[in-house]
Every structure is written in structure tokens, then in C-alpha cells.
């Protein structure tokens, strides 16, 4: 039987793994970016990134001081009776002192920092009910430097795919070196304004080397990524060949009179973690891989 305490401990461990180690698809993409550079400045930036990833792993230390705010995606089994929310909140509180995580969550107006990453609406949990017998928990610990560069627009249907491309291009140019490139771009298309922003963030949960199952969307992902890498923003905005290491799109059907588009900009430290908690209380950590 799973207990609330199991959830709490597993969440602490999930957060620790997530802030210390990158998923293998992200690390591989960064290695390819380093191989592609020829100039001294971008090479130095990417070498520093690779060295940092190594040091973080060896020291069991968060790779970046900005451990984000904690946004969770939870799939519950049917008839789940334990208080998963309580386990997650207490897990975040404990992880903040034990990992440690930087206490980032503040009141939006007074800017008062409670010091434990817990406040109204934070951690934020997206809930789903699935058909498996395990609880699946994914967390994204995303820094503000990249999040602050995210944008959304309500386009008109007549602006179409060209309007979407224009918007993505202008978002990336405007972001420049601010979001810690090489960046990852999560694109949401359709839904409504709120759904579109959620899709953009969820797009960042898909491995970078996995294209969308719809071939048309997959083609758009590849075309946009290749074109954006011709911009020359480069690692840390200091110029170079790789501006983005990935671009994922998710879509939802939308109103016939709307075309929402959203871009969630992610930094090179594209951290995401997923685990499963089985009915016998055993937790299985899937991402980042061991």
C-alpha cells in the first residue's frame, strides 16, 4: 500500500535527480552542439556547460542555481485514495532544505519569500486520471531567465502557418542571449489562450529527439529548428552555430475564429523528471535516466 510518506520521500528524490542530472536526449544534443562549433567563444561556452554537467553529477549538486518553481504533471490511477497533493507539497518543502533547492517562490506583489517554495498555487499540479495502477509524477524545474522570454499571441486564422512562423521567429530574436541558449522551444498551437500556453510548456516534456506523431507537425518542427539555427545567436547569445537544440510542437483543436500560438522558451538546462509509484510503494525513476 502506498502511503503519503512514500509520495513525500519519492518527490524529494525525484527533485534531487531532476536538478542534478539532465535527461540523456538533452545531454546528447549539447554534445552535438559542442562538436559543431568552430569559433573560440561559443566553444568555450559549451565546454563550460559540459564541464558543469559533469561537476553537478559528481558532486550531487544542482547544475543551475535557478531550480525554478515546481510544476508537476500527475497521472493518478482510478480510485486513488491517498492525498497525493499533500505528499507533493511536503516533498517540495523538504527538498528545498535537503537537496537544496533555491527558495524561489514569492508573493507576486509583496515579494515576500516564505523560504520553502510553498505558497498559494505553488507547487502547481496538473492532474489527470489514467488507466494504470501506478501514480506517475513528472516535474519540470524551469528557471525564470528562460520563462521570462515566453510569449503568446492570439493570431487570426488568416495569418495561418506563416503567422505562426513569424511569431516563433520574433520570439527567438527578441529572446537573444537572455534565456541561456542553446535553448529549447516548446510551441503550443490552438486550444484557447490558456490551453495554448499549457501546450507550449507540455511540449518541453517530450524528448528532443522524438518528432510529433503527425507528419505535418513533425516537418514544421524540423523546418523551424533548422531555420532558427541560421540566426547565429549562439550559446549564451555570444554568437555561434547552435541557437536551439530542440523544438517541439503540441496542438489542440481550436475555435474556428481563433489561432492561438504560444512559445515557451527553455534554457540549455532543460530539466525534467518522471517517476512512477507502484501499488506496493516501490518508486521507479524513469527520467533523468540512471
Amino acid at each position: 500500500m502506498v502511503a503519503e510518506a512514500d509520495i513525500q520521500s519519492a518527490v524529494v528524490e525525484l527533485l534531487r535527480r531532476t536538478v542534478v542530472k539532465l535527461p540523456s536526449d538533452v545531454e546528447e544534443a549539447l554534445e552535438r552542439a559542442l562538436d559543431a562549433e568552430v569559433d573560440e567563444t561559443p566553444t568555450m561556452q559549451l565546454k563550460a556547460i559540459m564541464e558543469n554537467i559533469k561537476l553537478a553529477g559528481e558532486g550531487n549538486t544542482p547544475m543551475c542555481q535557478d531550480t525554478g518553481v515546481t510544476i508537476f504533471y500527475v497521472t493518478l490511477p482510478k480510485n486513488c485514495e491517498i492525498d497525493v497533493e499533500r505528499g507533493i507539497i511536503d516533498g517540495v518543502r523538504r527538498a528545498t532544505s535537503e537537496v537544496p533547492l533555491r527558495p524561489n517562490a514569492v508573493h507576486p506583489i509583496t515579494r515576500k519569500n516564505p523560504g520553502d517554495n510553498v505558497g498559494d498555487g505553488m507547487p502547481y499540479i496538473n492532474w489527470k486520471v489514467g488507466s494504470n495502477d501506478f501514480i506517475e509524477i513528472t516535474v519540470m524545474t524551469k528557471g525564470a531567465g528562460s520563462e521570462n522570454m515566453s510569449q503568446m499571441a492570439m493570431l487570426t486564422p488568416s495569418q495561418g502557418v506563416k503567422g505562426i512562423k513569424e511569431f516563433i521567429l520574433s520570439t527567438v530574436v527578441r529572446a537573444g542571449g537572455n534565456p541561456c541558449p542553446p535553448m529549447v522551444l516548446g510551441v503550443g498551437i490552438g486550444g484557447s489562450s490558456d490551453i495554448c500556453m499549457k501546450l507550449a510548456k507540455q511540449a518541453l516534456l517530450r524528448p528532443l529527439n522524438e518528432r510529433h506523431k503527425d507528419p505535418e507537425i513533425a516537418g514544421l518542427e524540423t523546418e523551424l529548428l533548422e531555420a532558427l539555427n541560421m540566426l547565429g545567436i549562439g550559446p549564451m547569445g555570444l554568437g555561434g552555430k547552435t541557437t536551439a537544440i530542440g523544438l517541439n510542437i503540441e496542438y489542440a483543436y481550436c475555435h474556428t475564429a481563433s489561432l492561438p500560438v504560444a512559445v515557451n522558451v527553455q534554457c540549455w538546462a532543460a530539466r525534467r523528471g518522471t517517476m512512477r509509484i507502484h501499488p506496493d510503494g516501490r518508486s521507479e525513476f524513469l527520467t533523468p535516466e540512471e
Binding site: A48, I49, L55, P62, M236
Partner: peptide, 10 residues
């Protein structure tokens, strides 16, 4: 002076 963003352990 620019320092590599995210390279916090380094």
C-alpha cells in the same frame, strides 16, 4: 564580464 549561464557548479 559574461559568465556561462546555468553553469552554476563550475
Amino acid at each position: 564580464l559574461a559568465i556561462t549561464g546555468g553553469a552554476a557548479v563550475l
